Simulated assay, not measured.
Amino acid sequence: MLVFVLNAGSSSLKYQLMNPVIKKVFASGICERIGIDGVLKHEYGDGKKLVINVPMPTHKEAISAVLSTLTAGEGKVIDSINDIEAIGHRTVHGGEEFASSVLITPDVIETMKRLSPLAPLHNPANILGIEICQELMPGKPNVGVFDTAFHQTMPDYAYMYALPYEMYTKHGIRKYGFHGTSHYFVSNEARAMLEKKQNTRIVVCHLGNGSSVSAVLNGKCIDTSMGLTPIQGLMMGTRSGDVGAGALQYMMAKENLTIDQALDIMNKKSGILGVSGKSSDLREVLEGMQNGDDRCRLAVDMVAYIIKKYVGSYVAALDGIDALCFTGGIGENAALIREKVCAGLDSMGLVIDPVKNDRRSSAARDISTNGSTARIFVIPTQEEYVIANDTYNIVSGTGR
């Protein structure tokens, strides 16, 4: 089955054309600068690449351009859009309503619209992508794969905030978590690498421009670092992560900020960028640290320290650990961050092998010492595969 995977953002969209049964990707790419001018970056075949400048005033023109590129010209990989059998959508916020991926229906779209205040930048764009695909490819089944779904197994004492209970019953204010498709994929890969399906205690660190940690017991999430929105938890590229409410109030008073202005700072001007003053890209900050920039050094130390604190707390929540996993752009490539996170965790059974850690590879690998009682894995995430596979299973009726 050919599945068209779509991740529609506010001004960009990523796509992939895949057969999840044989795990073959025929094409992938991204549309950028939607609403400004439009750039389509398309990869197909054995690493062939195209960059196409095409007007994209709206998402409709962007998706139309992708479908045209897939079916005609130099980047062609299929004869017709009729070859596409289903569309899988990355959908960000499913609230408590969606604990698994679902076939898109009018009721599902209405529920997503109702949940949009919880993800105002993401859900409307996701819905727009769904509706455009329904228009351009009528009759094709669409499936929504929610970032929050994997975390719906958290117990109430883990997802509740210590606010008046009415804030939860009236407004749904609680921890939801994100990056669920990645945490699901990586934790299951780790279970396979452990050759152990029962009594597995796994901590997954998804580290990129957006980052989160999850505690996974026997394949089910019992806690995660992100909360009602993706701002909570770890220090990220431009997001602050955990900040006390008193500090937020004090900053607002001193700088004469509205709540929207304060949240804009916490979402877009904080994190690695805010502390280093250099970049939100950790690679540039690591380079700055090596050149003696003390603010870059501080940012790197903070990133690793905060991850390490979450790892330790989740080992406690799991009553031990069988595997610690690193994934995402930073998790897969930043050996120094992995080294700093694992330093001193010997008492938890986590002992990193410096030679294995420094060895670069695109494959999943074990970087712990032979004597480590718990394993340390680097596992490249495959969120698009999870979306495509869930879409295939739902459309074919086999279930996840």
Rank of each mutant, 00 (worst) to 15 (best):
F4T: 05
V25T: 14
I30A: 00
C31P: 07
K41W: 01
E43C: 11
Y44N: 10
K48Y: 10
L50N: 14
V51Q: 15
V54R: 13
K60A: 10
K60Q: 15
S64K: 15
V66M: 10
A72G: 11
G73I: 05
K76M: 14
I78S: 03
N82D: 15
T91F: 12
I104W: 07
T105W: 04
D107A: 15
T111S: 14
L118F: 15
C133L: 09
L136H: 05
M137P: 04
Q152P: 00
Y159R: 11
Y159T: 03
M160V: 06
M160A: 13
Y161Q: 00
G172K: 09
H183F: 13
T200R: 00
R201Q: 13
V203Y: 00
V204C: 06
G210S: 15
S211N: 05
C221G: 05
L228M: 15
P230F: 00
R239S: 04
G246Y: 12
A247V: 13
M251S: 14
M252C: 11
K254E: 14
I272K: 07
S280M: 10
L282A: 07
R283M: 04
E287F: 11
G288K: 02
Q290E: 14
V300A: 06
A304E: 03
Y314T: 03
Y314R: 02
D319I: 06
G320E: 11
G320I: 07
I321P: 04
A323D: 01
F326N: 05
A334H: 00
I337F: 03
L345K: 08
G349Q: 05
D353A: 11
N357G: 10
N357D: 12
R360D: 12
S362E: 13
A363N: 14
T369G: 06
S372R: 05
T373L: 13
F377I: 08
E384W: 12
I387D: 09
Y392C: 04
